[in-house]
């Protein structure tokens, strides 16, 4: 079964981009447009990897990360931060990687493959 990636971003265009890109490369995907929906989706889908935007209306990306790290089912899911905020590597220190928007998709794919080992 293919590995599943959860995309959390408030911009539908970017969600569409990322999910299409992951699907084209053989991954299953699901998505959420804010932190709350992201938490619910993570609980339900138990993805193998999450890409996370930091600056979203409502709950902030780092809060979602903290919430997940307190959840036994979710705390070990690797997270790749994809955000437009500069200095984003400090917001979530334990993230696998931090990419700045606009990101290079080959770099992203390489990171995903390394993380998921497939």
């Amino acid at each position: 079964m293919s590995k599943k990636i959860l995309v959390v971003d408030d911009d539908p265009a970017i969600v569409d981009y990322l999910t299409s890109f992951f699907k084209d490369n053989g991954y299953a995907t699901c998505s959420a447009e804010d932190a709350n929906a992201g938490f619910e989706a993570a609980k339900k889908e138990l993805p193998d990897l999450i890409t996370l935007d930091l600056d979203m209306p409502g709950e902030w990306g780092p809060r979602l990360y903290r919430k997940m790290s307190q959840d036994k089912d979710l705390k070990n899911i690797p997270v790749i931060v994809i955000s437009g905020l500069s200095g984003n590597q400090y917001a979530i220190p334990k993230a696998v990687a931090c990419l700045k928007k606009p990101f290079d998709r080959d770099t992203l794919l390489k990171l995903v493959r390394e993380t998921l080992g497939a």
Binding site: D11, A13, I14, Y17, S20, G84, K101, P102, F103, R105
Partner: peptide, 12 residues
Amino acid sequence: KGMLTALDGGIY
């Protein structure tokens, strides 16, 4: 940055 990323997405 968000817009440029979305534009990248469209081009992809």
